[in-house]
Write a protein that binds this DNA or RNA. Structure first.
Length: 152
DNA sequence: GCCAACGTTGGC
DNA sequence: GCCAACGTTGGC
């Protein structure tokens, strides 16, 4: 069992949007960063646990928990010239970009804010709080996962 | 809206 | 392969 953190701008796709989807699942399209892609493509497995993080909003922080429900497959939005995430480098017979599906588990009882996470010595190594880190998907250690959850 | 910290692109 | 210019992310 592995743990992850995935960022989303709530204006684009929020934890409530995930909760309200049919089957409460959604594909995680639009990742166009190789490091993040590699984690999705090579490492994320069904039932891995995910912190759902809201970025670029009033109170950035962890707002809920999701889980991986489908392992990586080609991100079809890269094939569509009309899609915002279109990438001519990627073709159906040789895809460059991949995605996973995630399912809603629950919302946290409160937002665990970035500000709060930064205050905790125990999370000094969490990729999220490291200077300059802009990865939209990052690993979370079992210890970090447990520590963050007990903050709730 | 600002801007730091990246990642990507492309000329050479 | 170097690196300047440019684009993006995302906190503030």
């Amino acid at each position: 069992m592995q743990y992850w953190l995935m960022k989303s701008e709530p204006e684009a796709f929020s934890i409530d949007d995930l909760r309200d989807r049919p089957q409460q699942t959604e594909h995680w399209d639009g990742v166009r960063n190789y490091q993040a892609r590699n984690m999705m493509r090579d490492q994320m497995k069904v039932d891995d646990q995910v912190f759902f993080y809201h970025s670029n909003c009033e109170e950035p922080g962890i707002v809920g928990i999701a889980r991986v429900v489908r392992e990586s497959y080609p991100d079809f939005t890269a094939f569509d010239p009309d899609d915002k995430h279109f990438d001519p480098k990627s073709h159906p017979d040789k895809p460059v970009w991949f995605m996973v599906d995630i399912g809603f588990v629950r919302k946290l009882s409160r937002t665990i804010s970035l500000r709060e996470l930064k205050l905790r010595d125990e999370l000094a190594d969490l990729a999220l709080v490291r200077r300059g880190n802009r990865l939209s998907i990052m690993p979370v250690s079992p210890q970090q996962w447990a520590f963050i959850l007990q903050l709730e």
